Amino acid sequence: MAQPYADPLDAPAEINRLAAQSQLTAITQAGARLVAVGARGVVLLSDDAGQHWKQAKVPVSSDLVAVQFPDASLGWAVGHDGVILHSADGGESWSKQLDGRDLLKLLTAHFQAQAEKGDERASQYLDLVKLNFGNGPEQPFLGVWFENERDGFAVGAFGTLMATHDGGKSWESWIEKIDNPNSFHLNAITGIAGELYIASEQGTVFKLDRNQQRFVPLSTGYAGSFFGVVGDQRFILAHGLRGNAFRSTDGGQTWSRVETGNAAGLVASAISDKGTLLVASQAGAVLRSDDLGRSFSALESVRPYLFAGLSQVDGDRVAIVGMSGVQIAPAQ
């Protein structure tokens, strides 16, 4: 007998003994622990550098897209159906802080109140909210970043941008606080050397202007989409479609194209404390740079499949996730 339909927002993630070989989309570190997330609400934990994995308890079965831990205990994961999840125990258990149903109510009330005060842009944002949620609470969050235990942002499709200043207990719209009139998708958000960057479409990287308290666009000279931004205090690198990568050494004011030697989308990246940069390709390659993103070479030890995320395990190994689960490979 067929099982009755359960909305992913109402159905906890099923425990699957083969979860480490299932579709995974992102991976990060929570202290010494690896935390990976993926389809149908799967969250996996490893305390031995990826040799063994256990599945965490998750209250939803919506696909999860991104995960970040500002410290070893506190973490956030985001994904489809407007889901924002929070863990206070290093990923062992998760609670839902926001979903698409709540997001629709929150944004509608917010922009209605602004429109009633005569804010013409608020009426336009209200129309956008109605359009985006016309088929239900399905709009995904695509990235999340917390600077500390209280201050964080979640970004997503069609310019969705939310902020919290109380660790996610409450969320507020920042859609009107980003110079994004075309409602570009906000594909990832990353903190680098005290600055905050968002990877977006049409060659756009947004940077938080802390004085204005809004995100402003940086023009890279590229016309395609970026999927991520990575770097340290010396440089930043935006990477995206068809192997394209653009590098800046002045906080995004000027950019130069970098030859990556790869023609597939560059979907994920990580940099070690020593400055070793790794970038994952959609087509199954991992590129390494030891000169701050000026040049790249492919890791020969990687088993190729459709990659989606990566994290440096230590100076010698990299954890990569994608359609075939998780892979641990030498980073040399």
Rank of each mutant, 00 (worst) to 15 (best):
H80R: 05
D81Y: 13
A39H: 15
G75T: 09
G167P: 09
V67Q: 04
F307W: 09
G322P: 04
Q332G: 15
L131S: 08
R40F: 01
T25I: 00
H239T: 00
A72V: 05
W255Y: 00
K105M: 10
D47W: 07
Y5C: 02
L128C: 00
I175W: 05
Q312K: 14
G251H: 02
L142V: 07
K54P: 00
E92K: 14
D7I: 01
W53N: 05
A88C: 01
N211G: 12
R214S: 11
A20D: 13
F133I: 03
V35L: 06
G243Q: 05
V129F: 12
F215N: 13
Q51M: 11
V35F: 09
I15P: 01
L266R: 01
E116R: 15
F235H: 08
S219L: 13
E138G: 07
P8H: 08
L241H: 07
G82T: 07
R317C: 00
D209V: 00
K57L: 07
Y197D: 09
Y305T: 13
G31R: 03
L299N: 14
A36Y: 00
V43N: 00
V37R: 02
R101G: 08
G231L: 10
Y305K: 04
S301H: 04
N132P: 00
V60W: 01
A223G: 09
L126R: 10
V42R: 11
G261I: 09
N180T: 00
E147T: 12
V229H: 07
V58G: 03
G143A: 07
L98N: 05
G322L: 12
